[in-house]
């Protein structure tokens, strides 16, 4: 019997899992952004002493994991599972990090939705009683993503105004059955939604319908009012995607205009940093949540958060074959204990 399931797509936890510690690492550009004071580590060199961008990303993930475990006052050997993924083919960053960390590993591909995908699955494992401590983490790297999905770095081309900037960064969260920290009350798992957008320079518009669908489902399933949350935060929709999401959600009768924002708009100063529509990538919602949001929750400046990481599930092959971009979004409801 699925006794913890409510509505059609939501799980309500009996003994809500606790996020006992997080950490975040970002690259130099993100470190110059408006959230710089919230990140644990800001790299001076985005190659991170490695010989390729891919290895640099993997190292970022690995070191962020170690720091998150430390911040949660736990040992690496306490971690019973690792849920992780990234944007690279065959999850190079996550698999290579897992090789060094030696934690039982589930590799996930959810494109940029990986932060809440890993948190959702991790929380279910904890509440299900299958583990006491695990780590959920993800990363992205501007240079490794750029060379896999677009053009060589030094190639001259003009970025479109709707294009987003892949965040160089990694975020890790330790999820535990006992301890101090905000708890995960609900997770709403999203469906793949695709309204036919094919332009890979406009991923915000491609993912917005999925985000809106998951947000609406979350409120339908839980019956919570939209003003229950201090902040509803999507992953990396950027300026255009955010506007579309607001309107699509409003269209379904839920008003989130007052308490909704997007991580992609928080991480960069789009005007000054020339990042056009905003940040993107797995690292976007991961670093904003594990850095900014978690620290503000610990200070109790924010108490109730709905985090919805958003992913664009296209591949280089699917785009070249002219297919549209399927979107996905998973919501995780994170609440301060006793609030």
């Amino acid at each position: 019997m699925a006794i913890k399931k409510i509505g059609t797509q939501t799980v309500k936890f009996d003994s809500p899992p606790i996020i006992t510690g997080t950490s975040s690492t970002v690259g130099p550009k993100e470190g110059e952004g408006p959230l710089s004071q919230y990140f644990d580590v800001i790299l001076k060199d985005d190659l991170y002493g490695e010989k390729s961008w891919e290895l640099a990303e993997s190292k970022m993930l690995r070191e962020t994991a170690k720091l998150a475990v430390e911040n949660a006052n736990r040992k690496l050997s306490d971690m019973e599972y690792m849920f992780s993924g990234d944007l690279l083919n065959q999850l190079m960053s996550a698999s290579f990090a897992a090789r060094d960390l030696a934690i039982p590993f589930f590799g996930l591909y959810g494109a940029c939705s990986t932060m809440t995908q890993s948190l959702s699955l991790g929380a279910m494992i904890i509440d299900g009683g299958y583990a006491d401590n695990l780590i959920a983490l993800t990363s992205s790297h501007f240079s490794s993503a750029e060379r896999q999905f677009r053009f060589p770095l030094e190639h001259g081309n003009q970025r479109k105004l709707t294009a987003q900037w892949t965040v160089t960064g990694a975020g890790a969260a330790v999820v535990s059955s006992l301890g101090d920290g905000p708890q995960i009350d609900y997770v709403t798992t999203g469906k793949v939604v695709d309204l036919g957008i094919k332009d890979i320079n406009n991923m915000g518009a491609a993912m917005a319908p999925a985000a809106a669908d998951t947000i609406v489902k979350h409120f339908e399933d839980t019956g919570l009012p939209t003003n229950y949350y201090d902040l509803i935060l999507t992953g990396d929709l950027g300026q255009i995607g955010k506007e579309i999401t607001e309107e699509l959600v409003l269209d379904k009768g839920y008003n989130i205009l007052k308490n909704y924002n997007d991580c992609g708009l928080l991480i960069f100063d789009n005007g000054a940093q020339d990042t056009h529509a905003g940040g993107s990538g797995c690292g976007c919602s991961a670093t904003v949540f594990c850095g900014y949001i978690y620290k503000e929750m610990m200070k109790r400046n924010l108490n109730k958060i709905l985090l919805i990481s958003t992913g664009a599930l296209m591949s280089v092959t699917s785009s070249q074959q002219g297919e549209s971009i399927p979107g996905i979004a998973h919501a995780v409801s994170i609440i301060n204990q006793g609030s």
């Binding site: 105004l161 957008i197 319908p209 255009i240 549209s324």
Partner: peptide, 16 residues
């Protein structure tokens, strides 16, 4: 529906 959405998105896209 896709056509409708595309038109709606195009209105949002800033002009270069």
């Amino acid at each position: 529906k896709e056509k409708e959405y595309e038109e709606y998105v195009n209105k949002k896209v800033p002009k270069p």
